[in-house]
Amino acid sequence: MFNDLSWSVVLDDPGRSFLLHGAWVSLQLAVLAIIGSTVVGTLVALGRVSTAPALAPLRWLLSAYVEFFRNVPLLVQLVFWSFGMFSLDLVRAAAAPLNPVYSNQFLAGLLGLTIYTSAYVAEALRSGIQSVPRGQLEAARAGGLGYWAAMRAVVLPQAFALAFPAIGNQYISATKNTSVVMAIGVTDVVFQAQQIESATFAAFEAYTAALVIFVVICLAESALLALVVRGMLTRVRPGVRTAAPTPALES
């Protein structure tokens, strides 16, 4: 087949605009899931490192969340959100205001991906928090700052800097994981490539195009993350040279 490659199926319209549209969907999913999982992951990590005896049930719940969602395949979770949760009228009604912009499949995919990635971000950040020396929290408390104020001003900035290489890996994983949403009918890059493939039988061209799009996005993302890591770590641990995320890390 390599002697009659037909790159025009991906380089010319309609294939090209299919793929570009797919790329735009994938990119939105990635960015929104990264933002969402950073917020949720931070809250979960903070809950897990809390020490108040009254919060023990919360800690148990959060560690159950982290263990459960990391040990169940993303695909299973996405199907659950899309065919389970989004089959409920209640959920559909709640999502209705967003439907002019985002389909229910997209929202289910985003929700699933965010919740899945949050569990990993939470673990990375938790170990970051635990590697900030105890004396830092104590010094801030001794100055009269409350627990949350001390966490926010003193511990979290350092924890983020220390955990950022690991968190960055999770961002890259999340970006690659956006591709799984094609299985629930979101029109991402891979979905579009599959459309092209089934219309033209040009499998090599279609999937290579999808691959190239992902490689480009992930490379750009790693380059960006490497810059952030360098900026962060030089402040917190000037002596330490940490490996920056390299092109494509976790899956």
């Binding site: 020396p133 004396g135 830092q136 104590e138 010094a139 801030a140 001794a142 003193v154 900035p157 350092q158 800097a161 402040r235 917190v236 641990r237």
Partner: peptide, 12 residues
């Protein structure tokens, strides 16, 4: 005021 053996200055 509390002064620690290992200073515990905020490095960031």
């Amino acid at each position: 005021g509390f002064v620690f053996q290992h200073f515990n200055l905020y490095p960031h």
